[in-house]
Computed example of a mutant assay.
Amino acid sequence: MNEIMLGDVTVARVEEMHGPVGMTPGQFFPGWTDEAWRENRGWLVPDHLGAEDDIVQVAFQTWALRSEGRTILVDTGIGNDKPRPAVDAWDHLSLGYLENLAKAGIQPDDVDLVINTHLHVDHVGWNTRLVDGQWVPTFPNATYLMPRLDFEHFDPAKNPNIAGGVNENAFEDSIEPVRAAGQVRLWESEHIVDGNLRLLAAPGHTPGASVLVLSSGGDKALLAGDLMHSPLQVAHPEHSSCFCEDPTTARATRRDLLGWAADNTALVLPAHFSGRTALEVARNGGGFEIKNWGPFPSY
């Protein structure tokens, strides 16, 4: 089952790919000792940690929502044909993402809204696709919601440090063509999507990082973007990933939002968890614990 109902909202998981990221836990989470990973290895393997090599495992996926008559995509993965010199595994991919989207009953023309929770390269890739040598919006009828702070931060014309980093080329091939087509809407702080959904700023991972809060018919969920990259961060929210641009702020944001999820019995749907993907959390002393895994099966 890759589709569930939360109140009046349908939520489906659409995979781009999943597997090892070529990094050990110590590389992915600087400052975190190997001991914590060894102690939890029994349940982290194989969905979140490689059984043979202890390499971190993640997924790249889209949450596809149907709410108030609209089709909404949350994050769009890495994308095909994209030049990604900083990450060989992402360079010029050829994956069946659109076919997977079709299996969820969604064609590109059906999409009304695309939400990029933040503008890292692996969350904007399918914003565009290559047609006759040109990058064009994949979803021609959609409005693309992007955080203003990230739009400005990742624009190489305003931030030359982007050149040569992981996000190299992403603004040019996955963001600017959508803006040029007049489909981008920028927001900051908070944005009401509809009566079931609202975007909230969740800074730290990037300056404009955000989460999508779902509240419908008594059900609540937190579509958490890159708030966490491993379920071990539930018990240890003090640890940020090497990709968090402001680890201290990311730590505070993670703790606050996990607290909200625990207090509201909200299903948490991170962007990158492999395996069963979704979970419920509960408070445990000064931290948190996994209360239940959600209804999505392992890949």
Rank of each mutant, 00 (worst) to 15 (best):
F60L: 15
P83F: 06
G69F: 05
T128R: 10
R38I: 06
V56K: 00
E172P: 05
P177R: 13
L227C: 08
L130C: 03
N196I: 03
N264S: 06
L113E: 03
L212Y: 00
R255C: 05
I72H: 13
H205E: 07
S210G: 00
G182K: 10
L98G: 02
G182T: 03
P20W: 07
D109H: 09
V281D: 07
L258E: 05
L257P: 00
R198T: 04
M1W: 01
A89K: 12
V114Y: 10
R38Q: 11
W37A: 02
D110R: 01
V74Q: 05
T277I: 14
G50M: 11
K103Y: 02
Q61F: 12
M1H: 10
R198Q: 12
W293C: 13
L101M: 09
T265Y: 07
A89Q: 14
D155F: 13
E16I: 12
L119H: 11
F28C: 02
P25I: 02
S230I: 05
H272S: 14
R276G: 13
D194L: 09
L73T: 05
G217Q: 08
V213L: 15
E35D: 14
K291Y: 08
L257C: 04
D194N: 15
Q183C: 13
M23K: 09
L113F: 12
F296D: 00
R254V: 04
C244L: 05
D91L: 04
D173N: 11
I4Q: 00
L149F: 10
V87Y: 05
R255G: 01
A59D: 07
L227M: 15
D263C: 07
E152Q: 14
W63Y: 11
L232T: 03
I55P: 04
D112Y: 07
A271C: 10
L101C: 08
H205W: 03
G125N: 06
L186K: 08
E152V: 11
I72G: 11
V121A: 09
G7I: 00
I106T: 07
T10Y: 09
S210K: 10
L197P: 03
E238Y: 07
K291P: 04
G7L: 04
L212E: 07
L269E: 01
S215Q: 12
A235Q: 10
H205M: 04
W32H: 02
G26K: 05
R13A: 00
H48A: 06
P156H: 12
N127Y: 11
T206K: 10
L214R: 10
D88N: 01
E3D: 01
H191W: 08
A252M: 11
W126T: 01
E172L: 15
L214S: 03
A102H: 01
L223R: 12
T24G: 03
V213D: 03
K291R: 09
P83Y: 03
A261R: 01
G96W: 02
N167E: 15
G285N: 03
F154T: 13
T277F: 02
V21Y: 09
A170G: 05
Y299A: 12
A102Y: 02
P140Q: 02
L93N: 11
P207W: 07
G287S: 14
V184C: 15
A261L: 08
D155K: 14
S216E: 02
G285W: 09
L119Q: 15
L212G: 09
F243Q: 12
